[in-house]
Design a protein around this nucleic acid. Structure first.
Lengths: 140, 140
DNA sequence: AGAAATTTGTCCGTATGTATC
DNA sequence: AGATACATACGGACAAATTTC
């Protein structure tokens, strides 16, 4: 038929193909992918399906998309832990308890707490920021 | 016109409305959301637009969707950790980026971020509060 | 157990808005 | 200003999973 998805949905098959091209270097890091209409022609799929495939790659951070410009392969992406230096930064400081933290720790608002902040980066871009709050109070 | 997206796109407006219902308890945790066709009727939007709105909430882990069943408000944070000595509570919300987070994520101050908060307790006492911040991820 | 109805998933085609080149 | 390219939105059709009868 025209649109049966045996086994895998088409957008997934297309995403797999594009992912392969990126990871194999056929589409080089930083290079623009073919336009949506070009992919529409190549895979003979509707634009919606193509967009769905690209959305998958975007979620995987494998490509980035800019309106009016196109989607380009994200420059160099490492799986797992980078072998080089640490991609995390940590720092510690004291901050006054906001009302919610104050309630949780059963202290007054404004009482200083220890805040440890970790910054997770990938290729320089901040993926997430983690802040851990603990009371200063007597050890243990 | 019928479908111009001045200002905010419709799917975003709809997502905001549904998010509000969930966070306000109008839609209780674990309860099923209205079906896509019901939402289609209520918001007088196409099913694709409704699905796009729900996809946003799914990305925010605010709802989970099962084929043939529906989408339900996420009841609890099933942290992949079995019951041990200490109890954890988790919750999620959106908060505006403070200047520091804004700088780290390279967004404007006030732009909404996803904040996941874990509370680590031991014997009822709060040991630590961990807040993880991530960007909402534009597009989609 | 089986059939029908319900509900989400996938896909197509088209039209129009908006940002970039 | 025009052309190109992505974003949003509509509508319809069928597939697949679940629920209901």
């Amino acid at each position: 038929m025209l649109t049966p998805h045996y086994g895998q949905p088409r957008y997934r098959v297309i995403a797999d193909e594009l992912r392969e091209r990126i990871e194999s270097g056929t589409i080089q890091p930083g290079a623009l992918l073919p336009t949506e209409s070009a992919l529409t022609a190549e895979f003979r799929a509707s634009r919606g399906t193509i967009r769905q495939a690209i959305a998958m790659l975007r979620d995987e951070r494998l490509v980035a998309t800019e309106r009016g410009r196109g989607s380009y392969a994200t420059p160099k992406r490492q799986q797992g832990w980078p072998e080089g230096g640490s991609a995390m930064e940590t720092r510690q400081r004291q901050v006054p308890a906001d009302p919610e933290l104050a309630a949780l720790f059963a202290v007054e608002v404004g009482v200083p707490l220890i805040e440890q902040q970790c910054i997770a980066r990938t290729d320089g871009a901040v993926e997430a920021v983690v802040r851990t709050y603990r009371p200063l109070r007597a050890m243990r």
